[in-house]
Nucleic acid binder design. Structure first.
Lengths: 298, 298
DNA sequence: AGAATCCATCGGCCAGACCGATAGGTCATC
DNA sequence: GATGACCTATCGGTCTGGCCGATGGATTCT
């Protein structure tokens, strides 16, 4: 192959150092090696890279152009080696994190930003499954880590750790019949359509909080919010998610006289016991709880 | 150096072809060479890239990650060689084009777009000097090509070619005293301040069209236009440049009873005779006249 | 079981990279 | 202009590392 990395590195060193001899000293090679490498590179490229008339060689215009290219290539190569070493040290090439669609992701963004700084090469995949699907994704290995509302029990082979709590409030659109009531009792709410998240896999074991008989089920939290805003039903949603809508008056909070004002649900972090987590996974395992503790807890 | 280009190319070929033997056939090498190259690469990186249990090797997760890096590196390397070959063929690494600041550049944008497609590696520099500075820049070699209003004579060693014409109109701001007049005669205009472009080098030989005694001189066409809009004087400007302002009523056109409605000025393309143009310069030399002929001529 | 692939390994070969020495050029200084 | 300090180009010798061809073991298909 023409224009090998060694040649290009030698060329770049010569251009940087200002002389072949200095480059040779810098690279720990003989001066003749530098001279020959540059000549071979010039032969391969068909252009002369240095003007050699004077005491020191000076870059030609073509040399300047190729120096840019060469340094870009060398930087790319250094990045490759860096990534290889990270992989050799056991860092996962990619990591999948499944976050329950009902959970707001804002509290975790700062942590993910720090993750990006510590593990720039790890390709992060973020899934937003609904309800018990989280546990299923972690159990099958499709995701390394999961975040979801706590359950009483989990399938075999899953580790979990509580990392915080989230306040849920019952809300309805401003024009919704329930929105006009001072307080709502069990019978009143039972007649109105409740909007719920639904898992993709119907056998999912997740308990759901159900107060009403007529129900629509959606897989997307965003779609659900749209329907609530449109007055098509009421829903239990995270406090932090609807704060803005409540303030703007688009949504009204329902005061349920058979429940505390906020329904507090725990949030669990899941990971599999089958395969050990790599360094990136371990890092997230430690970092996510503190993030949730600071921001997501009520 | 670890992880040479040959190793990476061989690795990429093996990953693409699906087997070491196929890669060897594809590369025209022996199968053992591929096998050894991949092993050496694995040794250098400290990770195993292929799962070799079955009949065909399959990429590991780390292998997939490094394959991406390797292919990015190889693409960069191919780009380097391509650029090197362009340089070897004499294509300029960079090209400077000086366009008189008084000329509208819109007619040339399509040509520059095609230039970008034909010579992606040529770094283009666009200068906007005023008046005779264009010829000076081309003469001294600071610019390879120049575009400016035609002169009677040019300095020694400059080639030139007329490429079109441009219509100039006299304009003033809507509140300017001259704007109220039906027709303007020589005496009237002589008393009002004329705004002119001025060259950076005062000895510049460029003829200028001067009608008024009080004058302000500016180097920037954009600044000049602002001053005219603000009613600080009148100016001779390209028709195409002020069309928008005339339509919006920000500027008024002055009907000079001692001049035709439009003053037609020729536009010349300049280049130096001292050093031959490279392929990119030659291409522009051919392409620019047709662009001007189609769009800039009145 | 046999044929057809595939991969890993080994010994031998050789191009190419490297070194050290040498010759010749340039530049600042005396 | 002689000198010294620096630079580069070239040459012959050495040796590493990539390559080949052959061989053997493994897998898959018939």
């Amino acid at each position: 192959m023409k224009a090998s990395l060694e040649q290009l590195q030698t060329f770049a060193a010569a251009a940087r150092c200002g002389s072949f001899s200095a480059a040779a000293r810098h690279l720990g090679k003989a001066q003749s090696a530098v001279s020959e490498a540059v000549q071979n590179l010039e032969l391969d490229c068909g252009v002369s890279l240095f003007e050699r008339s004077g005491r020191y060689p000076i870059l030609t215009a073509a040399g300047r152009a190729l120096l840019e290219e060469a340094e870009a290539l060398l930087r790319r190569h250094a990045a490759l080696l860096e990534r290889a070493h990270a992989l050799a040290a056991g860092v996962e090439p990619r990591l999948t994190l499944a976050i329950d669609a009902a959970l707001p992701i804002a509290p975790f963004l700062a942590t993910l930003g720090r993750f990006e700084a510590v593990f720039p090469h790890v390709q992060l995949e973020l899934l937003s499954p609904t309800l018990g699907d989280v546990a299923e994704l972690v159990r099958t290995g499709r995701a390394e880590l999961g975040l979801m509302f706590e359950q009483e029990d989990y399938p075999q082979g899953l580790h979990f750790r509580g990392i915080g709590h989230l306040g849920l409030v019952a809300v309805a659109g401003a024009q919704h019949p329930l929105a006009a009531l001072e307080r709502v009792d069990v019978r009143q709410i039972a007649e109105q359509r409740q909007l719920l998240l639904t898992p993709r896999q119907p056998q999912s074991s997740r308990k759901r909080i159900v107060f009403s008989q007529p129900r629509w089920e959606l897989e997307s939290q965003a779609a659900l919010l749209e329907l609530v805003r449109a007055g098509l039903g009421w829903a239990l949603l995270p406090q932090v998610l609807v704060e803005e809508d409540l303030r703007l008056g688009r949504l009204r909070r329902l005061e349920l006289d058979f429940q505390p004002a906020q329904i507090i649900e725990g949030v669990d972090l899941l990971w599999t016991a089958a395969r050990p987590l790599g360094p990136a996974g371990e890092w997230l395992l430690r970092a996510l709880p503190s993030a949730a503790g600071a921001d997501a807890a009520v």
